[in-house]
Design a protein around this nucleic acid. Sequence first.
DNA 1: TAGATTGTTAATCGATTAACAATC
DNA 2: TAGATTGTTAATCGATTAACAATC
Lengths: 221, 221
Amino acid sequence: MSCANRAASVMEGVIVPRADAPDVVIQRLPIYLRSLDHLAARDRQVVSSQDLALEAGVSAAQVRKDLSHFGEFGKQGLGYDIAYLRSQLERILHLDRPWYVLIVGAGALGHALVHYGTFAQRNYHIRAVFDNDDLKIGQPIGDGLVVQPMKEMCETIQSRQISIAILAIPASHAQQVAEEVVRCGVRGILNYAPINLAVPQNIPVANLDPVASLQGLSFYL
Amino acid sequence: MSCANRAASVMEGVIVPRADAPDVVIQRLPIYLRSLDHLAARDRQVVSSQDLALEAGVSAAQVRKDLSHFGEFGKQGLGYDIAYLRSQLERILHLDRPWYVLIVGAGALGHALVHYGTFAQRNYHIRAVFDNDDLKIGQPIGDGLVVQPMKEMCETIQSRQISIAILAIPASHAQQVAEEVVRCGVRGILNYAPINLAVPQNIPVANLDPVASLQGLSFYL
DNA sequence: TAGATTGTTAATCGATTAACAATC
DNA sequence: TAGATTGTTAATCGATTAACAATC
């Protein structure tokens, strides 16, 4: 991630405009959320920073320090109420509302993303899919959607209140498409293309490049 | 990422045993590699730390500092020879050999990964796909592969010299499968399941959870 | 040579950890 | 109350940046 006031980081993660808490902290909150869900699924009601840290793969001091950026959520001697902490993390991350998302690219990855049920479960709703291939345009995809031509993008983003774009396209098209979705009003990008997108500083970008991740693994093998 | 001697980080990235250079540096090398390719595609022969930094989205000082962990690759007054730096980064990351990979999960994501040509281009070769669904087992997938039952995993890993596993399965099965691939000799894991895997410290894990990434974006929107 | 740019050092900045008083 | 665990402070650790001598 990166911030307007720091150098942009190229790690997989979000490129960040600014924040009241460090970006590394923000990017750990979803992991804490995931860990709380996991604990709740095992019928736990309450959790200590120690146990949450174990589940999340960090230190207990880090859990407490991270949370302290946003308020006091625990009770001395007891720990954290799982349901309450969960709701607070959702509030902090702005997950207490639905987010409307578009996908550019109706290839194999685009299809996999459209069918990934976890998005809707987590309140991310895919409301449009675009492609530039005439053979794909018009084809049904997912639940009641149809692949749309790129020229309908601006209108659809506005009419369907879409604020996040997922780019599932080749690197060769990604920069141009990124500029287009930003011009049409998208406010954040999840980028699967292996390229470092140049976008305005107020547009956060999260990169998920499996090859870069594999290469980062290979060093240690 | 995390190291044996630091607390395990939960960011998307690799969980790391140990290294002679900091892990954040290692994880930037693939990005530099990507940037060099991009520059070479525009017929550049030589690049300054300044220009490479611009392309990669970091500072020029960081490029030079990062590279200095591994040797001296540039010439004062001139910059870096792109082809030479590229080959050196490949050597450092151990990309100067093929890597053999398996995928667990023949769902939509598994299919998208099998058809993602960039893996083979970058010397990551998918040599087996496994699933526990009898309806999928035996079906052809990708280029000359057939979905195999889980019980064939250990033998295949060994006979096909597989060292990396990609988990494209639900979170509910991921921990068990991770243990299984490690037991069978896999040395690194690329994990698409939304769960923090518990594996031995010498097994690096890279996590790619799109929901966690979207949640990290939502904070800034 | 003059100009440009590296590799490296020292300074700065920021993040993590350890420790403990507060308190449930 | 006694034991446990938080929230926070200060210390440590590590990463980034700035600056510049070396040198192509």
